[in-house]
């Protein structure tokens, strides 16, 4: 984490009081095959999407919709409409892999560390106050799409 003591007092308090769910237990799925034989997908909460897609919006509680990013998308065709100004974006201007490691995943396939990659990746907004829409609608929707694509492993990357 960005050490909480390194953040401004306002940012630290906001993070400590963030209304994320307090779960009692953890859903658990064991690996069915080695990573080197698995299909891997990526889900990011960096609020990126294709230029042709509708940007994420500033909504009360947060925008819980998602965007599909085909794996073969040209990085020049990907932009970010995350609503928060609490994080720096200039690093991702320099290197998209800093929050969306598309090139790194391709390299891991080439080296045999990962079996294969899904055709599609998925992007959500971060900084969501009310996750009801994620839990009831957009989360299950994306999970269904991932299963339909025979994905084994999902890599979750925040921003």
């Amino acid at each position: 984490m960005p050490r909480l003591e390194a953040l401004s007092e306002a940012q630290r308090n906001m993070m400590l009081n963030w209304p994320c769910p307090d779960n009692d237990d953890t859903p658990w799925t064991t690996m069915g095959r080695p990573l080197s034989a698995s299909k891997v997908a990526m889900v990011t909460t960096s609020g990126i999407h294709l230029r042709k897609d509708a940007p994420f919006r500033s909504l009360k509680g947060g925008d819980t919709s998602y965007r599909i990013i085909p794996r073969d998308s040209d990085p020049a065709n990907i932009i970010q409409s995350h609503t928060s100004i609490g994080f720096d974006r200039t690093t991702s201007y320099r290197d998209i892999n800093i929050t969306f490691p598309v090139d790194r995943l391709e390299e891991l396939v080439q080296s045999g560390y990962i079996g294969e990659l899904s055709d599609n990746y998925y992007s959500y907004m971060g900084a969501i106050n009310d996750v009801t829409g994620l839990i009831e609608d957009s989360g299950p929707e994306v999970a269904t799409k991932l299963l339909a694509e025979d994905v084994d492993v999902v890599l979750l990357v925040p921003t």
């Binding site: 984490m1 960005p2 909480l4 993070m15 963030w18 799925t29 064991t30 690996m31 069915g32 698995s38 999970a143 991932l146 299963l147 994905v151 084994d152 492993v153 999902v154 890599l155 979750l156 990357v157 925040p158 921003t159």
Partner: peptide, 9 residues
């Protein structure tokens, strides 16, 4: 689905 990921907080 098996998940693994990064967390900042």
């Amino acid at each position: 689905l098996v998940t693994t990921g990064l967390v900042l907080i």
